[in-house]
């Protein structure tokens, strides 16, 4: 176990607790268990006026030992309909989580980036082709109603999570 990554995660933990008021779309960002700083969870809130409104989307975050040289592994554990999220596995296609990762990101800024991906999808690199195709055809009504349906189905029932 590397002590550097623990030192860094502890710093991030303390900073996140201090900043909690400044991030409206992030309901929660914390280690799942207090004694394991390498496994976190987050809850993103669907933005008002978007098709995700009212939804609470849970993320599972695994910090590698060589973080922040390498990116955290983040996936949705709440089912979500989004062109850049795999519907079954929750894998997220976001350049900064992969090839464009730089160590100047923090967990908090990455979660904010994922949150803004929800309302700014990138249909040219889809993991969910059905959702991406609706967007690419310009069928916003179809896209929004599909997203709303899955949000209501999977992201609004706390029992389900």
């Amino acid at each position: 176990m590397s002590s550097a990554v623990h030192r860094r995660m502890l710093k991030e933990y303390l900073a996140i607790q201090k900043n909690s008021a400044t991030r409206p779309h992030l309901e929660l960002l914390e280690p799942i268990q207090e004694d394991d700083l390498l496994h976190w969870q987050a809850i993103l809130l669907g933005t008002a006026d978007s098709a995700y409104e009212g939804g609470r989307f849970r993320l599972d975050i695994v910090i590698p030992n060589n973080y922040p040289i390498h990116p955290p592994a983040i996936r949705f554990t709440t089912k979500i309909c989004h062109p850049n999220v795999h519907f079954k596995t929750g894998e997220i296609c976001l350049d900064i989580l992969k090839s464009e990762w730089t160590p100047s990101w923090t967990l908090e800024s990455v979660c904010v980036a994922i949150s803004s991906l929800l309302t700014n999808p990138e249909p040219s690199s889809p993991l969910n082709c059905d959702a991406a195709n609706l967007l690419r055809c310009g069928d916003m009504a179809g896209y929004n109603s599909l997203v709303k349906m899955y949000t209501a189905l999977y992201a609004m029932d706390d029992e389900e999570q």
Binding site: R7, R8, K11, P103, S104, W105, T106
Partner: peptide
């Protein structure tokens, strides 16, 4: 505009 938190350890 780098965050101290992000670069301090390096």
């Amino acid at each position: 505009q780098f965050e101290l938190l992000a670069f301090e350890d390096f």
